[in-house]
Amino acid sequence: MMIFGNTIQTLQSSLNYASTKNQTIANNISNVDTPNYKSKEVVFKDALHTELDRQFQATRTNEKHNSFGNNNSSSYSIVTNDTTTYNHNGNNVDIDKEMTELAKNQIYYQALIDRINGKFNSLNTVIRGGN
């Protein structure tokens, strides 16, 4: 039995997503002047739709077998935007967009950290007997 159900696992997956997004944005910003560099983006929806469209059905024949529903594949992917060019050198990094996305992602990440801290503070309160 898990103490918080799937909450911590969900928050961990969300932190992994936010971390990957932050790394991708930082990579785009650092390559803003690199000739022919194409910006990258972390995409959640496309991966979700791909998973939902799959018609894979599996049945466990023994309780000791691994569950098919608990795969650890991420629910997001990194895609390259090859469709645009903003600069004369073939680069398509929009620095204003990247800085906005970075700020939004930092707020999202901090909210996740606050939520995890709240869960563990609640557990700490219970362990101490409500003091």
Rank of each mutant, 00 (worst) to 15 (best):
T83A: 11
H65D: 15
N71I: 12
I113R: 10
R115D: 07
I29Y: 12
D94A: 03
E51K: 09
T59E: 05
H49K: 07
R60P: 01
N36T: 05
D114S: 14
V79I: 15
G118E: 07
K38L: 14
H49Q: 09
E41R: 05
Y108H: 12
I113E: 12
E51A: 03
D82K: 15
L112W: 03
N92H: 06
N71A: 13
Y76I: 03
R54F: 00
G118C: 04
N72A: 14
Y109V: 02
G69D: 04
S39V: 02
N27E: 08
N89A: 05
I107K: 08
K38M: 13
I78E: 02
E101N: 05
F56G: 15
G90T: 12
V93G: 00
S73A: 15
D33Y: 12
E41M: 07
I78L: 08
Y76Q: 02
N81E: 13
V79S: 03
H49I: 07
Y108M: 10
I95E: 09
Y109M: 07
N92P: 01
H65W: 13
G90N: 11
T50G: 08
H65M: 14
N70G: 12
D96W: 04
I107E: 05
K45R: 14
S39M: 06
N117L: 08
T84K: 13
G90V: 10
N105S: 08
K64G: 05
R115Y: 11
N89G: 05
G90M: 10
F68D: 06
R115T: 15
D96G: 06
N70D: 15
K104Q: 06
S74F: 00
D96S: 08
S74W: 01
T34H: 03
A26D: 04
N62G: 13
Y37P: 01
I95F: 14
D53C: 07
A26P: 01
G90P: 04
I78R: 00
Y108V: 03
K40M: 06
T61E: 12
K64E: 11
P35D: 03
D53H: 03
D33N: 15
T84N: 12
N91L: 09
R115S: 14
T34D: 05
I78V: 14
N92Q: 07
F56P: 11
R115P: 04
T84L: 13
T84C: 13
T34M: 03
N36R: 09
E41P: 00
F68M: 07
N87G: 02
G90A: 14
L112G: 01
K64I: 12
I107N: 03
N71S: 14
I107D: 09
G69Y: 02
L52N: 00
N70K: 14
N66S: 15
I95T: 12
N71F: 08
